[in-house]
Design a binder for these strands. Structure first.
Length: 819
DNA sequence: GTTAGTCCTG
DNA sequence: CAGGACTAAC
């Protein structure tokens, strides 16, 4: 490419010269150059599209840069003959600048990605489109018999005089030439050059660049007009010209002055009309060549277009392959959707995301990398580029057509360009539509545990999702933002984000699975769900039952509606538990339902404290009730709690099935365990919550749970002891705790709300003992002592019984509850 | 200094 | 049920 650029520069210079000389300004022939430019543009567009896909932002950036550059150059000319004289001048200026800036033109060019340039050019062209002036010029020329020049308007359009008058850079030509060491451009030379398509392409590119620059207004460069003709060498001038701009250039991206430019251009056009005639004769020779060239260019253009279309198709195909293969069925459950998306999208690893320079070869990899968001972005970028291209082409085409007019039918080129543009647009639109449909479809699809193509299916139990989230993929935001950018496309961002999380396999599955934990009410449901708690973490656990896993899988979360987590959703613990009280969808009919909300709520509290979540999800979407959110928040919370090391470990699927945090099921389990042990040691907790990855936070929380349990327990004991005293009970012996008594009911209600667990008799004994201790203490008036309960605690703590082994199983809940 | 526990509050 | 304050033990 660089070579081409340099060549194009040379060509440009030659053109310049010619113009100055008055020989063949059009030598470069607008037509050829224009077509070449288009071709080039297309090629660039191609690359640009891919690159664009990577980042739209980058485009804008580049574009702005280009503009700035352009602006600086343009200004000097006063933005007059937009297309013609200015162009040439600007070109020369640009060239000079480039040269100065970098030893090699290539370097200078590097900063401007094809995309940017193209887009810029297109923009400019569009702006010009009113471009009556251009057309007029060209048309005039044509009439004059001036060879329809494929070259940029500038060269062709700008007559020497105009160029001189308009352009401050008399020196331009010389300058341009000098750097390359080229002799003043001659017609013959030009012809030769022109013959070479390579050169033309280069030239066209340069012209495009210059053109774009010319459009951009702001910088005022000292205009060394007329010098061009007068001098061949303007090293000095160059310096002058060059010096001014560098930074100022960058300032004004889009030019509000488009109007001015147009007006000025129109004037010039008139002038130009006259001038061309003189030169026309000299260029007559070139006409034939021009035609051929044009045709060639057209062909190239077509080829390129076809190529692009092919690529597009390929992309589509791949896209569909990736997504469709994954999802065979088309069910639409929102909750499911999310999962699917995550799974599907993950197929792409973020590997090759960048630099999709339009390599066809890369397509495969790219596709693999694609996530919906990416794809959409790309498609969008492509569309834009195409549209721009089409627009830009129109004007040029017009010019060509007119030129042709001399030779042939008037606006054939234009029509052709339009057709091409239309075709491209249609293609793109259809592609976009398909893509959107696909994406939507994918979203809509129910989350099946189907293994994603890219990632091996996780045999892992549910709840991975939170962990994955925890990973907090940086892409999350970007992806979402990207998606959001598509105002037209209504797609749940979360998908993208999730999808973008390359490392999250089975996200969907996790979520889905996790949900089951929440619901337990219905007998049937209950079974599945209850197991879920254990299931999530515990594959590694010896006691783990495979069945639980499957059961959990089958579970369908009632609350799971939207993939996007709500910032303050609730205590995130992976709890797929029903929606927090505050949220709708709390349809649990089971007895446990009562507990769950409560639990969730508490969790929520925690969540609220966690700020992380908010950050993550705010951008995403409005709050959605759902376990997903919870899980997400959970992960966040976890991260908060955990040590750095823990954080590191957080990697979702690192090794084991261990959960990152405590779930409502864990809470329930802990409550049931309380029937056996009131003072579990931390080691014991670790043993019985083997499916949880222990860290300070988790340990503390578990301890706190039991502390709270005890608190409630003792409060009840004291309460009932006092009540008994008030009731006239005189002896502790009279006190007994049976399953029918209020005390037990209260306790059972607290620790076994669903009453789906058979409280061990031992607990009744302990409760009775405790009650009597309190009774005796109170009767003895020990309650006066602030620490009077401590003695009781001492006694009670010794009454702990062994917790059944079954509690060690992650699936214990399911099993226990079933029984 | 950390851990575990209690008490109180929300 | 969690958080904070406080205490006690290691």
């Amino acid at each position: 490419m660089p070579d081409h650029d340099s060549d194009s520069l040379l060509n440009r210079q030659t053109k310049r010269r010619r113009v100055d000389i008055g020989v063949k300004r059009t030598v470069g022939s607008t037509a050829s150059s224009a077509t070449a430019a288009t071709t080039d543009n297309i090629a660039r567009a191609k690359a640009a599209i891919f690159s664009a896909m990577n980042s739209l932002s980058s485009h804008s950036h580049h574009g702005s840069d280009n503009d700035s550059m352009e602006c600086s150059v343009v200004q000097p000319h006063g933005g007059p003959g937009v297309m013609s004289a200015n162009d040439s001048e600007s070109k020369s200026n640009v060239l000079r600048k480039l040269l100065k800036r970098a030893n090699s033109y290539e370097d200078a060019m590097m900063p401007f990605p094809g995309t940017t340039i193209i887009s810029q050019l297109l923009k400019n062209n569009i702006a010009k489109n009113g471009g009556g002036p251009e057309r007029g010029e060209r048309g005039d020329r044509v009439k004059t018999g001036f060879p329809g020049s494929g070259l940029s308007n500038a060269s062709s359009d700008a007559p020497q005089e105009d160029a001189c008058s308009n352009s401050s850079q008399d020196s331009t030509p010389q300058e341009c030439l000098s750097p390359f060491g080229r002799p003043p451009g001659l017609a013959t030379f030009d012809i030769e050059r022109l013959n070479d398509e390579h050169l033309r392409a280069k030239r066209a590119r340069v012209e495009n660049i210059i053109r774009g620059m010319s459009h951009s207004p702001s910088v005022v460069v000292p205009a060394a007009s007329r010098h061009e003709r007068d001098h061949d060498m303007d090293g000095e001038r160059d310096l002058e010209l060059d010096c001014p701009p560098p930074q100022s250039q960058q300032q004004a991206p889009s030019s509000p002055r488009g109007g001015e430019v147009c007006s000025s251009s129109s004037r010039e056009n008139k002038r130009k009309q006259r001038l061309p005639q003189q030169q026309q004769q000299s260029f007559t020779q070139l006409v034939c060549q021009r035609k051929e060239q044009k045709q060639e260019e057209r062909r190239q253009l077509k080829l390129q277009l076809e190529d692009m279309q092919k690529q597009l198709r390929q992309l589509q195909e791949k896209f569909f392959q990736i997504y469709d293969s994954t999802d065979d069925s088309e069910h639409t459950d929102l909750h499911n959707d999310i999962g699917n998306m995550s799974e599907d999208s993950p197929g792409r690893s973020d590997t090759g995301g960048d630099d999709r320079g339009g390599d066809d070869l890369r397509s495969d990899n790219e596709m693999a990398d694609l996530d919906p968001g990416h794809f959409l972005d790309r498609a969008r970028a492509l569309l834009q580029e195409q549209a721009l291209l089409a627009n830009s082409e129109k004007p040029r085409r017009d010019g060509l057509g007119r030129n042709k007019g001399q030779v042939g039918p008037g606006s054939s080129m234009h029509a052709e360009g339009k057709q091409l543009a239309e075709t491209l647009k249609q293609e793109l639109n259809s592609a976009m539509t398909q893509v959107v449909d696909t994406v939507v479809k994918v979203f809509a699809k129910p989350p099946r545990p189907t293994p994603q193509q890219a990632f091996p299916p996780l045999s892992i139990p549910p709840e991975r999702f939170p962990a994955a989230v925890n990973g907090d993929n940086p892409n999350f935001h970007t992806a979402n933002q990207r998606l959001q950018c598509f105002g037209d496309v209504i797609i749940p961002n979360p998908l993208d984000s999730f999808a973008s999380m390359s490392g999250i396999p089975g996200t969907t599955n996790d979520q889905t699975e996790a949900l089951p934990l929440v619901v337990r009410k219905t007998p049937s449901e209950h079974h599945h769900q209850s197991s879920a708690v254990g299931a999530h973490g515990g594959n590694h656990h010896p006691v783990l039952h495979p069945s639980s896993l499957s059961a959990s899988m089958g579970f369908s979360p009632p609350s799971f509606r939207h993939p996007f987590p709500l910032p303050l959703m609730g205590y995130p613990f992976q709890t797929p538990i029903g929606p927090p009280t505050a949220y709708p969808g709390k349809d649990r009919t089971s007895p446990d339902s009562m507990d769950l909300p409560r639990e969730t709520t508490s969790l929520r509290t925690k969540m609220s404290s966690g700020h992380h979540l908010g950050h993550h999800h705010r951008s995403c979407s409005p709050a959605h009730p759902g376990s997903t959110a919870e899980s997400l928040s959970l992960s966040l919370i976890k991260s908060e709690c955990s040590d750095l090391q823990d954080m590191a470990d957080i990697s979702p699927y690192s090794g084991s099935n261990i959960q990152e945090g405590l779930s409502p099921n864990h809470l329930k389990k802990a409550k049931l365990m309380f029937f056996y042990t009131r003072y579990p040691s931390s080691n014991m907790l670790k043993m019985f919550f083997s499916d949880v990855k222990f860290n300070r936070c988790i340990t503390s929380q578990l301890i706190k749970w039991f502390s709270n349990f005890r608190e409630f327990y003792y409060i009840q004991m004291e309460k009932f002891a006092r009540q008994a005293i008030n009731d006239g009970v005189t002896g502790a012996e009279e006190l007994s705790v049976s399953r029918d008594c209020e005390l037990f009911r209260a306790l059972n209600m607290h620790y076994n709300k669903a009453n789906d667990f058979e409280v061990p008799d031992r607990f009744l004994e302990v409760a009775e003992i405790t009650l009597r201790e309190f009774f005796n203490a109170i009767v003895a008036g020990k309650d006066v002592d602030p620490s009077w309960k401590k003695a009781i605690y001492k006694v009670i703590c010794k009454l702990d019984s062994e917790v059944p082994e079954i509690f060690k199983s992650p699936n214990c809940l399911q099993e226990l509850l079933h029984e």
